[in-house]
Simulated assay, not measured.
Amino acid sequence: MSAATGPYRSVFRDGLFAGRTVIVTGGGSGIGRCTAHELAALGAELALIGRKPEKLQAVAEEIRADNLNAVVEGFPCDIREEERVADTVRLVLQRFGKIDGLVNNAGGQFPAPLSQISQKGWDAVVRNNLTGGFLMARECYTQWMADHGGAIVNIVADMWNGMPNMGHSGAARAGMVNFTETAACEWGVSGVRVNAVAPGWIASSGMDTYPDWMKPLIRGMRDHVPLQRLGTEAEVSAAIVWLLSPAAAFVSGTTLRVDGGVPNARRHYPLPKHEASQPFDGFHRSVRPKVLEE
């Protein structure tokens, strides 16, 4: 993957999201950045939410450079703060007049065994990966979608069978899956669909944020994937876009895995080495993580 300028090579038809407004949290980097680019390329008007305004601005400028008519604006916000979230959603509605979709992508964690996680560390990760997503979804629903419908996609993780060294994140992500299923039931009366996407090991900028002791583990991850490779940001974005699209009009309460089959691998079955799986990378500005180049 290499950074370049040019159009996003989406598999979806041009103009698919024309006239629709979508919020993308965590839109300043990684999967959120890629998803924002794809949605903009398909005609969506975008509200990017994140804690660092400079990152939101940088992505907004990229999108405008690639799409001259793009409508995109950053809204700095800590999604863990209830009042800030409510105020930010109000600002988005004042700016765009509606909210058709929410991509609940913001989150984060740090590696540590359960025995070494303090309550403060536990609470920080749960607030990032569960509480913040709940607050964003609730405010989008109560302030707009309850009366107008919409689609919500929550980004979780491959937490099936546990997440050793990431137990706080695994618990939060599992909670978000359950929240997704509950919201799909309760909010269906308003024509709101709520789904989740669970990325596995994705070659994204987040890989470069982990400590040195994890680097060999990251470089060896592909050996544990039945498809024998890591995923791309564009492969996750495509799943998100499909769930937001009219093609998924009868899909709600589901979690779509984008993980190369990792949860299906078994210890008694040695995975054969191969290069049969060819990645899809429609994101013209993707950059391969440095850790994978070492």
Rank of each mutant, 00 (worst) to 15 (best):
L48Q: 06
G50I: 01
R51M: 05
P53Q: 15
P53S: 13
E54M: 06
E54G: 04
K55P: 00
A58V: 08
A58Q: 10
V59A: 00
V59Q: 00
E61Q: 13
E62G: 00
E62D: 15
R64T: 11
A65R: 12
D66P: 01
D66T: 14
N67I: 15
N67E: 15
A70Q: 09
V71C: 13
V71E: 09
V72N: 06
V72Y: 01
E73S: 11
F75V: 09
F75N: 04
P76L: 12
C77F: 05
D78Y: 10
I79D: 04
I79P: 05
I79R: 08
R80F: 00
E81G: 08
A86N: 03
D87C: 02
T88L: 06
R90Q: 13
L91E: 15
V92N: 00
V92Y: 00
V92S: 00
Q94N: 14
Q94R: 14
F96M: 02
F96Q: 06
G97I: 13
K98V: 07
I99D: 00
L102C: 05
L102V: 15
N104K: 04
A106C: 12
A106E: 09
G107W: 13
G108N: 09
Q109Y: 13
P111G: 05
P111L: 11
P111M: 09
P113Q: 11
L114Q: 08
S115I: 12
Q116L: 09
I117W: 06
S118K: 10
S118P: 09
Q119L: 07
Q119C: 12
W122N: 04
W122K: 04
D123I: 07
A124W: 14
V125Q: 02
V126C: 11
V126T: 05
N128Y: 03
N129Q: 10
T131E: 07
G132F: 08
G132D: 07
G133E: 01
G133P: 04
F134C: 03
